[in-house]
Amino acid sequence: MKIIHFTSLSVAAFTASIQLCAAADAIKPTQAEFVMKASFMDRGQAKVDRLNQDETQRLCSQYPEKRPPEVARRIEALNMKLMKYPADGKLLGDWKEGEKIAQSGVGKQFSDNPALPAGGNCYACHQLTKVEISFGNIGPSLYNYGKLRGNTEPIQKYTYGKIYNAEAYSACTNMPRFGHSGILTEEQIKHVTALLLDPNSPVNN
């Protein structure tokens, strides 16, 4: 539905009509959500339905700073239930491919070509290696990650899982759920896991 914005959008009328069709829904969208949705347009791969929130996003928006412990546990549990590990049981790929994925910031923006694979953009938020000094600090440094933790099976499983769905381990983290949300493929996550854990990777040297 296309709304003409110049003639003042009557939120009240809008709200009333939506409440009718959403009567069966337990969660009523707020007026802010109506206004938001009416303020965006589909562009390229980024459609307006991206404003819809799953339970994790809704709860994390509701409690941006502190949240009751039971809410945090609920978010972690529901994300853990959605965790998927590779069918072949192999969790490590090629760290060299992983480095390329960690560098690449393309993907999922309306200005990106959806036919090209997305990157992980890990350097946007993490230090990973000694050579790359252009790194952000929204996440902790991962330099020497594998050296400090070892390359055991439980660590491999945690690392793959963390990249696949970070919310399963820390509710409302700022880290995207790369596997769960379809940003990176299973194979790409294996490569990035190798970047963190392979003893020959620049992360550990």
Binding site: M36, R50, C60, P64, K108, A124, I138
Partner: peptide, 28 residues
């Protein structure tokens, strides 16, 4: 509400990048 609204494939909201002190994306 919009500032704190997290959504999309990356779960981002304004608050992800502008909610804490001294944060950087890469060097920005």
């Amino acid at each position: 509400t919009m500032f704190f609204h997290r959504g999309g494939p990356h779960d981002f909201g304004c608050v992800t990048c502008h909610g804490a002190d001294n944060q950087r994306i890469r060097l920005q």
